[in-house]
Computed example of a mutant assay.
Amino acid sequence: MSWTRAPLEELASAIDYGITASANFSEGEAKFLRITDIQDNSVDWAKVPYCDAPPKKLANAMLADGDIVFARTGATTGKSFLLKATPKNAVFASYLIRVRPTAKIDSGYLAHFFNTDDYWGQIRAKAQGAAQEGVNASKLASLEIPLPPLDEQKRIAAILDKADQLRQKRRQAIALLESLTQSIFLEMFGDPIGNPNGFEAVELDGLVDRKRGISYGIVQRGGEFSGGIQVLRIGDILDGEVRIDGLVRTDPQIASKFQRTRLLGGELVISIRGTVGRCAIVPETLTNANVSREIAVIPSLERERNEFHLALLRTESAQRRLRDDVKGVAQSGINLEDLRKLPIIRPPLDMVEKFLHICSKLSSQRSRVKLFDELGEKTFSSLQHRAFSGQL
């Protein structure tokens, strides 16, 4: 079935930028939604900061149910989020673009379209060529949207909503296993920052290969370079793992200038700008890849303890310590010097080995659940393709 297509600007009453303001976590005139507050297609409004701005600016940026916001720059360029159960007096930051759909299109249908290969192909084409990937409001407005009758839009959205609920349940099972690892860590070792057990502790910098040190990656990687060097970005780190499916590539000549962050496999990586604190162990399959400037590479000398160190970095107290070190407003992040000083506890080896043995068993369980999740993702992708090609 062939549907007409229309530019997004004909289907939206507003495609606009948010406001520039300082985030305040204690008080303010309105909740201040930022790119970093949108995680795994959800927002924990209790953790979203406040902001103050002139009344007219606040009124123009006020969010409502059915609005869709987009990340317009950085590693998450093109990621979108459909507003539901929006709190009163919530506005959005300038690094987001808001689309407010008209009655011509169902917001749920449009939100699902913004996850299709069709959409991402258009976004990548429009984002290329800039020193830092991004899309502006005019580029977003020119996106071509397939436009079936409104009743069909709502039917498609309802079907995909139900399928997405099943996806979320599988991911909740994976998250439960992840939280179990954290619970076991805390039970065995306690708060790694407060260190109530009095374990020996050293600074993170004391555990790394001195020839490489802790460094951040490529500052300006340029556009996509076919056959080039793979580059790991913040969006490629999720739930303590590196996702290799969506890696971008850069010119080998650009990558060659950042030898200290050339990956060998087995390093720890952690995001230090924007969404601070995402961390993972680099798989061996990424040997010779590199990282973006938003990520620091930690070339550990104790790879046999990597899982222990990863679990430590993912604890709430370690994440809170990292957040406390964040500086800046528009481009917030942590300095490498602060990261190097992060305290790392050194429990007895037999305790660490026991923990690693438990981690190995939990990892096997996660692998089985993720296998089902991957099969489910393929089914969902097929359903999504059929939905937007008129085959449902």
Rank of each mutant, 00 (worst) to 15 (best):
M1K: 12
T4Q: 12
A6H: 07
E9L: 04
A14V: 09
G18A: 08
G18C: 09
I19P: 00
I19T: 04
T20Q: 06
G28I: 03
E29Q: 05
R34S: 13
I38C: 04
Q39D: 13
A46L: 15
A46I: 11
K47T: 11
Y50A: 07
C51F: 01
P55Q: 07
L58P: 02
N60M: 00
N60C: 00
A61D: 01
M62N: 15
G66N: 13
G66T: 11
F70C: 09
G78I: 00
P87R: 10
V91W: 01
A93C: 09
Y95Q: 05
I97S: 08
R98V: 11
R100V: 12
H112N: 09
F114K: 01
F114Y: 06
F114H: 04
T116P: 00
Q122C: 07
A125Y: 06
N136V: 12
A137V: 06
S138F: 06
E144G: 05
Q153I: 04
R155K: 12
I156C: 08
A163Y: 08
A163W: 04
A173H: 10
I174A: 13
L176W: 02
L177E: 15
S179H: 13
Q182N: 10
S183L: 04
D191A: 07
L204M: 14
V208I: 14
G213Y: 01
G213T: 00
Y216G: 01
R221T: 14
G222L: 00
E224D: 03
S226D: 11
V231C: 12
D236Y: 00
R243V: 12
L247P: 03
F258E: 01
L263Q: 05
E267I: 13
E267M: 10
L268I: 11
G274D: 06
E284N: 11
T287S: 14
N288A: 14
A289T: 07
P299C: 13
E304K: 01
N306H: 15
H309N: 14
A311F: 03
R321F: 15
L322A: 05
D324R: 15
D324I: 04
D324K: 09
K327I: 07
G328L: 01
Q331L: 07
I334L: 05
L339E: 02
R340C: 12
P343M: 10
L349Q: 08
M351Y: 05
K354Q: 15
L362F: 07
V369G: 03
E377C: 08
H385S: 06
R386C: 04
S389I: 01
G390W: 13
Q391T: 02
